[in-house]
Simulated scan of single mutants.
Amino acid sequence: MNGVLQEFLDWAYARHTNTLSWYIRPLFVLPLAYFAWRRSWKGIALTIVALLSSMFWFPPPERIDPQVQAFLDMEKELILSIGDLSPLYLLSVLAVVGSLTALCLAFWRRSLGWGLIIINLMALLKVAWSIGEGGDSGRAVLLPAMVGLVLCDLAIIWIARRLHLPISLRRPRGS
């Protein structure tokens, strides 16, 4: 691997061990939902760039929880096996892309009910995948994922109530 690229990946990986990024990443669901609702491709694209880069916004932690390190080592190994293109790797990539697409589509079509269902499924599947793939170390994802889930659900429900928007699986009339 190119020396500069390897240096960047090492720099980014050290920052990814800071769990603050784990807590803010689920909150990107909110601007993603907002821009999908507003039907703004530019906003959706910028949110995805911010989401992808957020894993290295924070400085490396002084101390890394061993459970976090073990989980990230498992993720790193999975990412580095991209050349293998195993069915599990391809399924994981498709699940991430598919869930983000489904989330955007739900809000684009103005369905708060489907949007909330997809947000909850994304969080629960992330936790299930993390524990399934990472074993005990996957439990490190549980608290950040659930905090993000609760905050996103509460924010969307609060906004819906403030704006008198129905939380329904049906598309509102006139949208």
Results as ranks from 00 to 15, higher is better:
Leu169Val: 04
Leu100Gln: 08
Ser53Trp: 05
Arg109Met: 02
Arg171Asn: 02
Gly113Arg: 13
Val127Tyr: 02
Arg109Ala: 02
Leu125His: 03
Leu85Cys: 09
Ala50Cys: 14
Phe107Val: 04
Ile117Arg: 01
Trp37Ser: 07
Ala155Glu: 01
Leu91Pro: 01
Ala70Ser: 12
Ala102Tyr: 03
Ser168Pro: 01
Leu100Asn: 08
Val68Glu: 10
Pro31Tyr: 10
Trp37Ala: 11
Ala102Ser: 11
Trp41Thr: 11
Leu85Met: 15
Arg162His: 03
Met55Trp: 04
Glu7Trp: 14
Leu149Gln: 12
Gly43Lys: 05
Ala14Gln: 13
Cys104His: 06
Pro60Leu: 08
Pro66Asn: 07
Pro172Arg: 10
Ser92Gly: 10
Ile119Cys: 14
Phe8Gly: 02
Lys126Leu: 15
Gly98Cys: 06
Phe56Glu: 04
Arg173Met: 10
Met122Phe: 14
Trp37Leu: 13
Val29Arg: 03
Tyr34Ala: 07
Ser92Leu: 11
Phe107Thr: 04
Leu78Glu: 09
Arg110Tyr: 09
Glu77His: 13
Leu151Thr: 03
Phe71Leu: 14
Val147Pro: 09
Phe71Arg: 12
Ile117His: 00
His16Met: 06
Ser86Cys: 12
Gln69Ala: 15
Gly134Lys: 09
Ile48Gly: 10
Tyr13Phe: 14
Val49Arg: 04
Leu27Ser: 06
Arg170Pro: 00
Lys126Thr: 15
Thr17Ile: 00
Val97His: 01
Phe107Glu: 05
Leu105His: 15
Ala95Leu: 11
Arg39Tyr: 02
Gln6Leu: 15
Ser99Ala: 14
Ala45Asp: 05
Leu125Ala: 14
Arg109Ile: 00
Phe56Arg: 11
Leu27Gln: 06
Leu165Trp: 11
